[in-house]
Design a protein around this nucleic acid. Sequence first.
DNA 1: GAAATTGTTCGAAAATAATCGAACAATAAC
DNA 2: GTTATTGTTCGATTATTTTCGAACAATTTC
Lengths: 118, 118
Amino acid sequence: MSENIPFPVGELPHPAREELILSQVLFALSDPARLAIVSQLVEGPLDMARCYLTDPTIAKSTKSHLMRVLREAGVIRNEPKGRGRTLSLRREDLDYRFPGLLDAILSSAPSGERLDLT
Amino acid sequence: MSENIPFPVGELPHPAREELILSQVLFALSDPARLAIVSQLVEGPLDMARCYLTDPTIAKSTKSHLMRVLREAGVIRNEPKGRGRTLSLRREDLDYRFPGLLDAILSSAPSGERLDLT
DNA sequence: GAAATTGTTCGAAAATAATCGAACAATAAC
DNA sequence: GTTATTGTTCGATTATTTTCGAACAATTTC
C-alpha cells in the first residue's frame, strides 16, 4: 500500500548555489555542534558514521537533524554512499556567494572545533 | 520602597572584547532585522531613534530586544545620550577577535540591508 | 514641577527550534 | 531471503526566541 510517498530517501534536496541565503548560513553555523561538524569537513568529505559530535550522547535522529539544518542552508552536501552517507562542505558555492565568510568563521572557530590545518 | 533594584538603566552591561563568543555573534547576525541594524551602523554611531527597522510596525520593546541581543553578543555598543541612546558598531573588537568576519558578512549582506559604501 | 520623549524591563503569549524514541528505508553481509 | 548497519522521517515534548503591551526610568522641554 504505497500511499503518501514522502521522499525516496536517497537523494535529498539541496538548495542551488544561487538560492543560498546569508541569514540561513549564519544561523546554521551559529550552533557550536554544527560548526564543529563543518570544521571536520574542511579536510574533505567524510562518511557520516565517521563524523563525530562533541556530545556523544546525542540521539541519531538529532544528529540527522543537525545535518539537515546544514544541508538546507547549503553549507554541506549529503549524498548516499553504500549503506551510509557522505558529507561534504560546499566550499566553492559558499565562497562564490559569500567570499571570505567561511574562512573567517573557520579561522575564528574555537580550537576544539578546528582541525589541524598545517 | 526601593526593593529589587534590578539595574539603574543607564549604563548597560557589555561583554569585554575577550569574552566575545563566535557562536553568539553569528547568531546575533543571523537575523535579517538585526543584520540590517548593523549595516546602518557601519557608517558610524547612530541615535537609536534614527535607527530604522525594515518592519516599521514593530513594537518599541521588540526593537529594544533586538538591540539587546546585538549588545549581549558584543556586536554593538549601546550608551545613554541625552534622553535617548547612541548605538555603535564594535568594529575594532570584532575585527580583533574575528578578523575578516564582519567585512565578509557585510559585503555579502542583501542590498536592502547594506548602505552605500562608496 | 508637569508633560513629553525615548527606551528599558517585566510578564505573558506565540512562534521556532532542539531533542528524543519509534518506525521506516536502503544497502550490505550473511 | 534474513539479519545487521546506517541514517531519515514522523510525532510528541521540551527549550529557546520572538513579540507585545504595560509599567517604569531618565532626560528634556515647557
